[in-house]
């Protein structure tokens, strides 16, 4: 049988839309170039300034540490929440209720001002002797306050995301593991969590990107992250707009890198679950560019099969 040779469906609407978008884009580009108030030379000058680069590094570091705290603690809270023990489950519920119920900005300021509430932090027997004690102001540096504020808040959200992921795994998986003599925690670690990851990764990626931007709140506790660094320069030079552009460009670059990273993590956890892997960022880009008119039936979207072995 000869393959079907049909005239591809035309999409005149798409061409019209593209034309309209091109006009708008040209207008915008024109404004960017002709409006000297953008001060692009100043943007270029500060884009790789040492203060800014240090701010970028600080922002990345804060994001990674706060997300690490959030993911680990959130995972523990999710398992506690689903535990048959009413004690663990209630503790987890109260934690989530509290940290999700108050604004992260308030929590940040609160941690930063902890010394006002407890001037001294000490470890010892409850209501008994003290073994170790430290002045709160010395222990809670702006960085520690930032990690506590961002990480503990994030844990509450990650707990709910992880719980949803865990609950999406079929009960039969747990029964099969139990029937093989696996205990609850082993079942969680080896059977349930790896499958739950598929559901957890996309929203967790979202949270990481959100966190990258939320770290800008930390500028109010005088931690020199990206926004604070930009502010420290323009408060001196009064070049507010160009420095905000510098900060925005860096935020965009960082979130773009994270987005690409997320695709690869998703592909890793898709193993054994889908016949075809989700496309990589590059494959996606290529597909979006080269299938402007409808794809031909014999040229499907690029995809990688998940493993050797054929279809059944």
């Amino acid at each position: 049988m000869s393959p079907i040779k049909a005239v591809p469906l035309r999409h005149p609407g798409r061409w019209l839309t593209v034309a309209a978008i091109l006009v708008l884009a040209a207008m915008f580009a024109n404004a960017l170039v002709s409006n000297t108030l953008f001060q692009w030379d100043v943007v270029g000058q500060y884009f790789t300034a040492e203060t800014i680069l240090k701010g970028v590094a600080q922002t990345l570091y804060l994001t990674l540490v706060a997300m690490a705290v959030g993911i680990v603690l959130g995972g523990i809270l999710a398992v506690m929440r689903l535990s048959p023990s009413p004690v663990l489950s209630t503790v987890s519920w109260v934690y989530i209720w509290f940290f999700r119920g108050t604004p992260v900005l308030v929590q940040l300021i609160f941690w930063f001002n902890l010394a006002a509430l407890f001037p001294e932090l000490s470890i010892g027997v409850p209501f008994g002797p003290t073994f170790f004690s430290v002045e709160t102001n010395a222990a809670i540096t702006p960085f520690v306050a930032a990690i506590l504020g961002l990480g503990l808040n994030e844990a509450a959200y990650m707990a709910e995301i992880s719980r949803a992921g865990i609950q999406s795994v079929n009960d039969g998986q747990v029964e099969a593991a139990h029937a093989l003599g696996m205990r609850r925690l082993l079942t969680m670690r080896r059977i349930v969590l790896p499958q739950a990851m598929r559901m957890i990764i996309p929203p967790a990626g979202n949270e990481t990107i959100g966190m990258l931007k939320t770290t800008s709140l930390v500028s109010i506790v005088t931690l020199p992250e990206l926004l604070y660094s930009a502010q420290s320069i323009y408060s001196r030079t009064f070049q507010t707009i160009p420095l905000l552009i510098v900060a925005s460009l860096w935020y965009l670059i960082l979130t773009s890198v994270l987005t690409v990273g997320q695709y690869y993590i998703e592909r890793h956890f898709a193993k054994g679950n889908a016949r075809t892997m989700p496309p990589t960022a590059w494959q996606r880009l290529r597909r979006n560019f080269f299938t402007f008119h409808s794809p031909r039936p014999e040229a499907p979207a690029p995809s990688v099969t998940s493993s050797s072995g054929g279809i059944r």
């Binding site: 029937a179 054994g272 493993s307």
Partner: peptide, 26 residues
Amino acid sequence: HEREVARKRREIGMVFQTFNLFPHMT
């Protein structure tokens, strides 16, 4: 205790109607 229940289950194999193989493992 859960530990003892699990120990006993090692001696009893079970095959389910819906197989319940672990999909993320070969």
